[in-house]
Design a protein around this nucleic acid. Structure first.
Lengths: 335, 335
DNA sequence: CTGTTAGCGCGTTCAT
DNA sequence: ATGAACGCGCTAACAG
């Protein structure tokens, strides 16, 4: 591994001169510059960022802590974040927590040790302490997707309440009254807000809200299947189903079908979050889609701003409006 | 930012003693250990990996250089790699090259400067030089998905030739004879091999191979659309289409439909690579699926082995067999 | 069981 | 326009 010193020797100059050439800082005569560049090339010199970072306290690296990159929503967020980070000269380390607190804590402390310059953080829970811990190290955090109270950070997310309401309104317009919700865990803000939006839309339309039609699980395919099982134990079925995210919807559809129930003929289904590649092939699920790419992009930009202008102390709560996309998973119901 | 020195002062010991406590190395009396741990906790001490790495020449970080994490195949590979890396104590930095050489080169040199411990590398081209450059720095590389000749590295990939042949055999069994291929660029090994598999299966079945039915583009949705345009300029259409990857298939289906052609009624379609979430909702495309998760997992494991046992010099070429999954995108053709 | 010395590779500060 | 010295935070190597 050749160092700045080796290059210096080869070029017959002092290490600091090599440094100046490499970083384009300070004055270097074009003659010595050329000698240095030649030496660097011959020796395959690659600057050591570790050493540089040790002095500069900057790693040009962001952390992206999310739940599961396998979910197309997060995939797209990740892509947006990486594109934006890369445009600003940052790399990104990604970590899947699977909404698991222990995993998350482990990742966070590893990332802290690695001295990442900032965190793009999708919290697995409502607790503010992870963020507090990070802030104690003086590292900025942008929280994605989920609002947490009592912490001074930026948020980039979409309006879950509004999105849920849009979906429910759509169902109501089609004549549905008995609507069940397959929700995520109540300790995640988006789950609570999507339920809230559901309730609001129902009551606003003068519809009775039936607590027994609220199911709580996880934001996973398996959980979607489980909730169908629970649903089928009821005497009467709702005419429509609201899945609080795409994976729950997938699990629900599978379980419904394997129980001989067709969507939308036997039961209508809407869900939060798009499934891009799927709908490109077969436009099927009616959803509200979040601008996933922009969420990632915007979050990374915000984070980079905080890093480069470390004075910046005004925190933003950027809320995107989800968009209703009507496809073929709902049927009109005769009242 | 509190350092090992601060902790040492607080605990009334030497820095090295703190180091020993933190790393569980060497002898420390449980009395002083406790004092040190208390001091560390009070001061919110977080070890600085940069400093440690500078000495140890290990960053516990892998690079994952792929084409586009937005493609569900790569998403799954990435997840497998991250899970495996994390289990071995490594983080992973991911980079999207979009098959773009310039972007790729930029990423590679950045990652070299960052002193990642190893590369998981999906080459955007056939050239061995990027790998040679990395090896010059003494850093191991595992190449994913695409074989490159003339370099000593591990490969983890699947058998493109065999996969293509399986798909074509399936079509032949259904009576198809005029089959077009929508391929990726010829400078990518998988594209060449998928075409080769196509040819082999055809000739083996005694079918004539029609060069005019070979279309070359990119592994993208847009390219899939473009190739349909080209196809439609022909006087007579083939009865079946072989898309060399999932994104090409998606683009093809869209363009076919917008031109009033239905799959499979008007034309049958098979493709390489699954689209997991899509087929969970609507089992549609007949594909050969690669074990994406295992590819990522296995590659990361191999890489970690090279890193931890730096003596290891036997290189493997691990080839997985793709699996044919018959769904509903093909129709039998009467001869 | 604990401490001293030294150096990993680089860039800031201050000279020349 | 170029260089010397020092220190970023940490841990081998070697005392004691």
């Amino acid at each position: 591994m050749t160092t700045i010193k080796d290059v210096a020797n080869r070029a017959g100059v002092a290490p600091i001169t090599v440094s100046r050439v490499v970083n384009n800082s300070g004055y270097v005569s074009s003659a010595t510059r050329q000698r240095v560049e030649a030496a660097a090339a011959e020796l395959n010199y690659v600057p050591n960022m570790l050493a540089r970072s040790l002095r500069s306290n900057r790693t040009d690296t962001l952390a992206l802590v999310l739940t599961d990159i396998t979910n197309p929503f997060w995939t797209t967020v990740a892509r947006g974040a990486e594109d934006s980070a890369s445009a600003h000269g940052f790399s990104v380390i990604f970590c899947n927590t699977d909404e698991h607190e222990a995993k998350q804590d482990q990742y966070l402390s590893m990332l802290l040790r690695k001295r990442v310059d900032g965190f793009l953080y999708v919290p697995a829970n409502d607790r503010p302490d992870p963020i507090v811990q990070i802030h104690k190290q003086g590292i900025p955090v942008v929280v994605l997707d989920r609002k947490i109270h009592g912490v001074d950070v930026d948020f980039v997310r979409s309006d879950s309440k509004d999105g849920a309401a849009k979906l429910i309104s759509h169902l109501l317009e089609l004549g549905h009254k008995k609507i069940a919700i397959f929700n995520g865990p109540p300790n995640i803000a988006t789950a609570r807000e999507r339920l809230a939006g559901f309730k609001i839309a129902m009551t606003k339309a003068g519809q009775e809200f039936d607590e027994s039609l609220v199911f709580s699980g996880e934001f996973t395919v398996e959980s979607g299947r489980q909730m169908v099982k629970q649903l089928l134990q009821r005497e009467s079925l709702p005419t429509a189903l609201f899945a609080a995210n795409n994976f729950i919807a997938i699990g629900a559809i599978q379980a419904l079908r394997s129980n001989g129930l067709r969507v939308p003929e036997d039961i209508s289904l809407v869900c939060f979050d798009d499934i891009p590649t799927s709908h490109m092939i077969e436009p099927f699920l009616t959803v509200v889609a979040q601008p996933a790419y922009q969420i990632g992009q915007r979050a990374a930009e915000l984070l980079v701003t905080h890093i480069t202008q470390s004075g910046k102390q005004d925190f933003q709560d950027i809320v995107f409006a989800p968009e209703l996309i009507v496809r073929n998973s709902c049927q009109r119901v005769s009242s």
